[in-house]
Design a protein around this nucleic acid. Structure first.
Length: 591
DNA sequence: GAGGGGGCGGTTTTT
DNA sequence: CCGCCCCCTC
């Protein structure tokens, strides 16, 4: 492979790929071919350095990124060869913990709790403590999650906390952990923090994995939190061959504990770090890059990569002021309809999920097919969680959250479920098990109330069945369901080549690119969001988010804002976002 | 025990 | 404006 594959890379990229040993920091700007470098590096390790696949570990943040990398690496390697582990931090840790579960202090069949399950647990504790609804369960859960990301246990938290709210959290947190343990369940944060704890406390287990992973590659390093950072440090503790890729300008997950300073500290924490700068952008026009730079360069707390491209000039950025959100959506769809480009080349990006509604309605009205990414996630839907709860009680009888959930579905149904549970258990395929439960409990009858919503609920359960049909046993299915987001029907048809525009949040758009991007709702209080408008650090994150949004565009970028917007049912007057006024006039044409 | 109506509170982003 | 929670009724 060697010459031909490396020939697809520019000289900076080649250098970054070929330097496999020791600690390497690749600062890769937006559109600079970061995924390319990582995937070629894996291929290079296998084909050129003859590294066995099992000795390579590649971690990313999202399933989307992991999936894409797998696909690409698969293409580069010889047919039939084994693939290295490539997955999210969470899936890696879950797998490790299942293997080592006994030493970690829980049993192998532990449940993985998502946010809904976590909230159920917190609410239960709050009502036991008779704290009532004065403190919002979400806020408490967020504090606990933050603490876990910092590797702070309940005792540590109590020592460090002060104030009324923290007082409540420090009451809830230990009880919450105790309940998780009793339920034989881990939440998302536990997956990481329990792995770190396990490896720190058991040097033999740590060594096993340290020795196994000769080469470690970490994507989106600016988005690691303390626990993830510690984990990568431990895993690289024997060979020290670790390549991290990231860009502080694209750190947008500070709200969930990510700390871009980790990437800044990398050079201090490892000795003799080689730094690579990838600043050539292969995606956008110079006009778009200049616009992006004029926004991000206002940030002061992190280094900023100045990107360049051979793609000089390009169309000006267009700015549109609409009277209200309906007119804004109308403008977007008019532009799309008047263009001759394929629908899949358009993306409409927004700050909050709530904004999608008006856009969807406008699409329906004008007959433009669309794919909505995100929104209420498939596995979070009530009907899906209900069905999954029946299954989880089968694999993990201690799971009280699922138990309570199915009790709520109905006592009568519970009895019927329990009657058939014994027959169900015998190593049947997940699909058959679900069908059996549905039949006995008549669950579909319950959710099908004849309305459109009811119909869509039934459709969702059928969709779950089709996912289940791909799995041979229940545990594998449940693991996948917890850690991998399902592709919606719409996304599937889009990937099958049906033409549609894409609607999603800016967060969801990270790592993607489109010929034409509409950034809508560019207003003060919305983007930057009101809740991030007071703290300078939060504002810088909003600015990075805007930067990510702008740099998704390859050819054409529209920025739109409205004079007034319906917000919480009230019409409010809006001001244009500072991120728009930061862009100099010579880059802009007003429509 | 199940299901529906009315009041209340709340909008960020996600593995 | 929507979803959630509580309470009320069957």
């Amino acid at each position: 492979m060697a010459p031909s594959i490396l020939a697809n890379l520019d000289s900076d990229q080649q250098e970054a790929v070929k330097k496999t040993d020791g600690p390497n920091l690749i600062l890769a700007g937006a559109g600079s071919g970061k995924t390319r470098v990582l995937t070629y590096k894996v291929a290079y390790l296998v084909l050129e350095k003859k590294t066995p696949a099992q000795n390579i570990l590649m971690v990313t943040f999202t399933n989307k990124a992991a999936g894409e990398m797998k696909e690409r690496v698969f293409k580069y390697l010889d047919k039939g060869s084994e693939l290295p582990f490539m997955g999210t931090f969470h899936s890696f840790c879950a797998r490790l913990l299942r293997v080592e579960s006994e030493r970690a202090g829980f049993s192998k069949n532990f449940s993985i709790y998502d946010e809904t399950d976590q909230l159920d647990l917190v609410k239960e504790i709050l009502s036991d403590l008779q704290i009532g609804s004065k403190s919002r369960p979400q806020a408490i859960l967020a504090a606990i999650s933050q603490a876990k990301g910092e590797l702070l246990g309940p005792d540590d938290y109590k020592k460090l906390s002060f104030g009324y709210f923290a007082q409540i959290v420090s009451e809830v947190y230990p009880r919450y952990q105790k309940l998780l343990l009793k339920n034989n369940a881990l939440d998302f944060d536990d997956l990481i923090s329990e792995t770190v704890k396990l490896l720190k406390q058991n040097s033999d287990i740590a060594q096993k994995y340290q020795k196994r992973f000769c080469y470690i590659l970490v994507d989106e390093y600016q988005d690691v939190n303390t626990a993830q950072y510690e984990l990568t440090k431990i895993l690289a503790g024997f060979w020290g061959n670790i390549t991290v890729v990231g860009d502080a300008c694209q750190a947008i997950y500070g709200f969930r504990g990510a700390d871009f300073r980790n990437i800044l500290n990398f050079e201090k924490d490892f000795e003799n770090v080689t730094v690579f700068n990838l600043t050539r952008n292969y995606r956008s026009t110079q006009a778009i890059l200049d616009g992006a730079f004029s926004v991000i360069s206002q940030n002061e707390s992190h280094p900023i990569l100045k990107l360049w491209t051979k793609n000089k000039g390009g169309e000006l950025l267009e700015i549109f002021e609409a009277e209200n959100e309906v007119e804004e959506a109308g403008f977007v769809l008019t532009q799309i309809k008047e263009s001759y480009s394929p629908l899949s080349s358009f993306a409409v990006l927004y700050r909050t999920n709530a904004q999608s509604r008006v856009l969807e309605e406008a699409c329906l009205e004008s007959g433009i097919p669309y794919v909505l990414v995100g929104g209420t996630r498939f596995y979070q839907r009530k009907e899906i969680k209900d069905v999954l709860s029946y299954l989880r009680v089968i694999t993990n009888p201690k799971d009280s959250v699922s138990q309570k959930r199915i009790e709520k579905i109905g006592k009568g149904r519970l009895k019927k479920f329990e009657k058939v549970k014994e027959e169900i258990e015998r190593n049947r395929k997940p699909q058959e098990i679900i069908e059996n439960i549905l039949k006995e409990t008549e669950y579909l009858f319950l959710i099908d109330d004849g309305t459109e919503k009811g119909k869509s609920r039934v459709e969702n359960v059928k969709e779950l069945l089709s996912v289940a049909s791909k799995f041979e046993n229940l545990s594998d299915f449940l693991e996948n369901v917890s850690l991998v987001e399902a592709e919606s029907e719409a996304q599937k048809s889009a990937s099958e080549g049906k033409e549609a525009i894409t609607l999603m949040t800016v967060h969801a758009a990270k790592g993607l690119e489109f010929e034409t991007v509409f950034l809508v709702g560019m207003e003060e209080g919305l983007f930057p969001h009101l809740r991030s408008s007071f703290d300078p650090a939060d504002l810088e994150e909003e600015r990075r988010l805007a930067y990510v949004g702008i740099t998704r565009a390859k050819v054409k970028l529209y920025l739109t804002y409205v004079r007034n917007r319906l917000f919480l049912g009230r019409r409010q007057t809006c001001l244009v976002s500072r991120f728009v006024t930061d862009i100099p006039d010579h880059l802009i044409s007003k429509c």
